[in-house]
Design a protein around this nucleic acid. Structure first.
Lengths: 208, 208
DNA sequence: CCAAAAGTGTTCTGACTACACCCATGC
DNA sequence: GCATGGGTGTAGTCAGAACACTTTTGG
């Protein structure tokens, strides 16, 4: 039996939800795009393999990473069983590999190229799970830098949910839930009024 | 790589949440109890294996069955990877095998024997998932017969959530959500007023 | 003075909670 | 007539949704 791990790595970039894909340089499906992944190494746990893959592709490791679902018989893939994980990263912290052979690149989830190995199924499930988790957990911490403005945070929610949110209701909710707190510092950016900087009260996943 | 499937089969019996366990007749862990499961057969999908295991042990097949989580390195088990499923059955429809070698039996979840292969971890996750699903899906359909009284349905909720529920609020909620409808028929049982029989509007899992 | 983003309150509605009594039946 | 479970209504509270204007800043 052949087991592989794939990782759906999400980020928010330019106000859009993006996912990391890799252009396959080898057969099968050369030239198509696919989620980063690969076989388990000897003695490696599945979670360990997901952590490794994530770090390989983005250089980050202390982020939200969770098992998503286990598939079998995906397309014409080599693996019989594929354990999918999903991760959330702040795009500013990532350094993508500049590999000629296996090019990684961010793709807006609303405008994907054709994918290999039925990766669409995995992505659809991951996106749905992400949307759900936004509502009842603090996972958004993993998509933002240490300090951020409420407007930036709201932008992340809007990018993922795909619809505008009322500013005042949003502020009330997130502050009221206690997932963030004021730092007391402000940031000026361009010709704007300075904005209060916030931080997360917890950088571990918490169910609200 | 060695892959196994296990199935957490829940039912409600005597007002308590129960799970189906099997006493192991073979090494390793002979004499301990464990969740039903086993290796994948040749050419079988993981979902197919879960369906087969469920049918083997209970005789039912048209019930709620969903993938739960994928574990690795569980205890001293034979399999490297264990894909866990969970199922909900109406105890009245089941026929347990009367096997001398592999005795299956219902166990109240609040009073379990020692389990093999860290099956406690799987059970804890399954129970939590079940409680969550009760709140936002109609999965309870799979724990009740075709026709039932509201009191019976409420008893199932109370058994799973482990706390009493107000009768009037419960009725308002489930009827208001539209997950059940009146059949127009009533049932008399003992020295009681006849009770309206209800049925589920859908016997497929539905997210509310 | 203008453009751009930050910040701020109130009202309405629907959902959930808590709570107590009468009814139909079989024995 | 009594024990058993079936059935019903109301008031209070809270969370979420809708909604528009003023402030600070840099250019």
């Amino acid at each position: 039996m052949n087991i592989a791990v794939v990782v759906v790595i999400f980020t928010v970039r330019n106000g859009q939800l993006n996912v990391l894909l890799i252009e396959r340089a080898a057969e099968p499906c050369r030239g198509e795009w696919a989620l980063p992944g690969g076989a388990l190494r000897d003695g490696e746990s599945i979670h360990g393999a997901a952590v490794r893959k994530l770090a390989d592709e983005t250089g980050v490791s202390d982020v939200f990473l969770e098992q998503l679902y286990t598939f079998d018989r995906l397309g014409a893939g080599r693996a019989d069983i594929v354990v999918a994980y999903f991760a959330l990263v702040d795009v500013e912290r990532t350094r993508l590999r500049e590999d000629l052979e296996w090019r990684p690149a961010w793709h807006p989830i609303r405008n994907l190229p054709p994918l290999a190995f039925e990766n669409e199924r995995i992505l659809a499930l991951a996106e749905q799970r992400l949307r759900n988790k936004l509502e009842y957990t603090n996972v958004v911490y993993s998509l933002l830098p240490e300090r951020f403005t409420l407007t930036e945070m709201q932008g992340v929610y809007e990018a993922i949910l795909g619809e505008p949110i009322d500013k005042r209701n949003f502020r009330r909710r997130v502050v009221g839930l206690g997932i963030i707190r004021e730092t007391g510092q402000t940031r000026k950016r361009g010709a704007h009024r300075p904005a209060m900087l916030y931080e997360f009260t917890s950088r571990e996943p918490v169910t609200l």
